[in-house]
């Protein structure tokens, strides 16, 4: 039977394509990724691992915050599912470390102190 290997290859190919949306971000083919295996073990479901739409949303958010669209995709693809979820729901509350020049920092601190003890009111409480 010469046809069998070809048919099998086609079938595997077909199934791989059919299962593509279920596969992990990396090229693990039809295999279950370790992320999915862990999600199965811990929550009984691989749903969060496969939440592709969420990643697109976060990429759009990064683009809106000034990141080049292609780079935004790359940045989002390096996030874990938990991180994607956190970005999606709490990005505005997340600390963005900037580390201004010290003089600025000290000035700011003095302003905070003055504001706090009621000498000035620049922060509009």
């Amino acid at each position: 039977m010469n046809r069998t290997p070809l048919r099998k290859t086609l079938f595997v190919l077909f199934l791989s394509l059919a299962l593509l949306p279920l596969a992990s971000a990396q090229a693990t083919g039809g295999l279950i990724s370790s992320q999915e295996a862990l999600a199965l073990e811990r929550s009984g479901s691989v749903e969060q691992v496969q939440a592709w739409l969420q990643r697109d949303e976060v990429a759009a958010e990064l683009t809106a915050l000034g990141v080049d669209p292609a780079l935004a995709q790359a940045r989002v693809s390096a996030l874990s599912p938990e991180e994607v979820d956190a970005m999606l729901h709490r990005i505005d509350e997340m600390p963005a470390g900037a580390g201004v020049i010290e003089v600025l920092g000290i000035t700011f601190l003095v302003l905070i102190i003055l504001d706090f003890i009621g000498v000035i009111n620049i922060f509009g409480r």
């Binding site: 915050l65 990141v67 991180e83 956190a86 990005i91 997340m94 600390p95 963005a96 470390g97």
Partner: peptide
């Protein structure tokens, strides 16, 4: 992250 003027931990 330009829009935030900083970098997120994640």
């Amino acid at each position: 992250l330009p829009g935030r003027g900083g970098t997120l931990q994640v």
